[in-house]
Amino acid sequence: MRKIDFEPEKPPSTVHRHRTGIEGLDDLLNGGLKPGALGLLIGPSMSGRGTLARQYFYQGLKEDNASIYVTTKNFTEDIVTLMEEKKWTLDAYTEHYVFIDAYSPQSDPSLKDSVDVKYVSSVADFARLTNAIVSSMSENLARGVLNQRVVFDSIDTVLMYVSAQGVYRFLSYLRAKIKGFRSSSMFMIEPDLHEERQVRTLFQLADVIVELKPDEGIVQVTQPGLPKRRGAFRVGDTGCIVVPEPLD
């Protein structure tokens, strides 16, 4: 009788996560952000919030993900320059990333889209902004790139011009789209700029909250159903450094 070798049953695969590229932070996040997760990245100015977001964006490119960066308060060129200062050069990753720039058209409305930048004339134009983000995710998916990540820098600017209710409605829709595409995301917000009630409302949308507390030099991670995790946080020459506090 012919012997048939059956493949041993494989253990169930763990959910692939989108690493931030910051080893200690990935530990606090149990490996990174889950696909479909909406992350809120909270912290005051000069807290290292932007560096963390850019590192997460760049890590996506290093892992053959597609990365989308929505900027509402900086020129695209300035973000690229900040990345180059950390040696995070984008040249090798053309067509794997796109900037959605809702800031630059305020000073130059004649800007035309390019391969790596889509311009939206205003952060208050939710239809166009959503369209730019969703069409970018769709284009990536059409190219067979299944792992995507989105940085939204930042909600603060949107809240300056649109009511908190309006922003909540907009983000609710965007959240559903991000989940549909199984993208992970980091939405940046500086709570001190807004009323606490507004910020608390937006917290309801988050699957994970990463909060930077520069006075204490720590980062705190909050995920539903899990204990809060903390770690020491600082920005070094090559990126963010997180040293997790041990679990109790």
């Binding site: 939710f126 239809a127 649109v162 009511s163 209710q165 922003v167």
Partner: peptide, 17 residues
């Protein structure tokens, strides 16, 4: 263009808008 943005931009929220 647009009615929805007009509501969203009202400081008093949806009811006021």
């Amino acid at each position: 263009d647009s009615l929805s943005s007009y509501i969203d931009m009202c400081e008093g929220g949806e009811t006021d808008g």
